[in-house]
Amino acid sequence: MTINEVSLTHHDGEEAAAMLEELCDGYADAYGVEPGEEKAAAFRRRAEKQFTRPGFALVSAWAGGQLVGFVFGYTLPAEDTHWWGGVQPEPTAEFLEETGSRTWVLSEIEVRQAWQGKGVGRALHDAALGARGEERATLATGPDAAAQPVYESWGWRRVGRIPGDEGDYYSAYDLFVLELPVNR
């Protein structure tokens, strides 16, 4: 299995919604959990909410007719965004300003276990972010997420930590920012 066997496809929210079961199966495989377990169920709830958000986009990776990975996200709205709420250390007001076209949230990037470490994640990342017109992208990870060094090697910069909300998987999240366009 090599990255040369993988094809990437761009999708909108309606197409993503039609792929929900495949996305849930891919997510569960990426984390080595059963599709019905809490972590996978939480993914399903997040995904269903995001398919209709402005600027939503999905890039899927396929090999041999199987979904082997995906990335998706959406654009932060100009108002009522809670994304930066409580971030510490507190950035400048200019940094926190959202226009509805400034920041794209990389919400999920997942690769099936058999395909991890083969460049699929980076290909998905670059395909999704290379198609964006926003000034920057942002993502959130658990404070001890193994992916943090990978994101940093791809040019992401940690900007702070926010508290998690009640019912979140983590009690806090580290926020990262990447200036766009992506130059590899």
Rank of each mutant, 00 (worst) to 15 (best):
M1R: 10
M1T: 13
M1A: 14
E5K: 06
L8Q: 02
H11K: 01
D12A: 00
D12I: 00
A17I: 01
A18D: 13
M19H: 06
E21M: 05
E21G: 05
D25M: 13
Y27Q: 04
Y27P: 09
Y31G: 12
G32A: 03
V33T: 12
E37K: 09
K39V: 15
A40I: 09
A42K: 12
F43I: 10
R44L: 14
R45V: 15
R46C: 12
K49I: 11
K49H: 15
Q50K: 06
T52G: 14
T52A: 15
P54N: 12
G55E: 08
F56C: 10
L58W: 05
L58N: 03
V59E: 01
V59P: 06
W62N: 09
A63L: 11
G64W: 05
G65D: 08
G65I: 03
G65N: 06
Q66Y: 04
V68T: 12
F70T: 06
V71D: 13
F72C: 15
F72G: 15
Y74S: 13
L76R: 04
P77V: 05
P77D: 07
A78W: 06
E79R: 13
D80I: 05
G85D: 15
G85P: 01
G86P: 09
Q88F: 04
E90N: 02
A93K: 11
E94I: 10
L96W: 12
L96E: 13
E97A: 15
E98T: 14
T99R: 07
T99S: 15
G100P: 09
G100K: 05
S101F: 08
T103G: 05
S107E: 13
E108I: 10
E110W: 03
A114V: 07
A114D: 12
G121S: 03
L124D: 02
H125W: 05
A127V: 01
A128M: 15
G133K: 07
G133M: 03
G133R: 11
G133T: 15
R136A: 07
R136T: 05
T138V: 15
G142K: 03
A145N: 15
A146C: 04
W156Y: 13
R157F: 05
V159K: 00
R161H: 01
E166L: 13
D168V: 10
Y170R: 11
L175R: 08
F176I: 02
V177K: 01
L178R: 03
E179F: 00
E179H: 00
E179L: 06
P181N: 00
